[in-house]
Design a binder for these strands. Sequence first.
DNA 1: ATGGTTGAAGATCAA
Length: 258
Amino acid sequence: MKIVTFNINGIRARLERLVEYLAAEKPDIVCLQELKAGDDALPADAFEEAGYAGVWHGQKGFNGVAILAKGTKPELRRKGLPGDPDPDQSRYIEAEVDGLVVASIYLPNGNPIGTAKFAYKLEWMEKLRLHAADLLAAERPTVLAGDYNVIPEDRDTWSRSAMKDDALFQPESQQAFRRLVAQGWTDALRLFHPDEKRLYTFWDYQRGAWQRDAGFRIDHLLCSPQVADRLTGANVDKWARGEEKASDHAPTWIGLAD
DNA sequence: ATGGTTGAAGATCAA
């Protein structure tokens, strides 16, 4: 079973790319972020034609998350986090699908640092941590997939100096991420690529970042022990980032034994 | 210090 997280950067601008990706890789579950469209503007028919049904939490213009599944409709568990710092921002959706609990997460970017946006990021991470603890306590197979907007370690970026003032690379952001993982989650990508120097999931549109491989790793799939036991692989479908009109993120995935 | 790019909205902002 293949489970993907993919920051699509505008579902309407990217629909053709997504449909191509689904046809090529045939993932069983796809967590999408940055739909940048309200629920009424989402191309549900196109998802269906591609063989997928989904649940979503859209937002006009910004944010927006979804969970799609092949041949089965995910069963919605919740939209938004408990105690969500700003319920108007659609950044979290959780569903049950194929016997798994799956969340699609679009964690706040937090730039620029030293502003309310960075404080909001940290507050959001705290609410996520509290909810994640409840999910772990349920001892069910659970995947927290999404764009965390956190570069976990130095080796997860092409340049430490370029990122030193970026919210994604601040010690506070990294500490909050570590604190979440330390509850008992497995960072599946790093598990399967312990020595990979250029394990990236995002390349900026600017300054030829893709051509220079100036990327960083911010899309993560955190697995509960019940999922970690079933992991067969994890990787980044980098080919999708090289397509015309690609998202600035590449689809990132885990494989699970049935 | 600045600018480079993209999407969606709307004459900028968020990333």
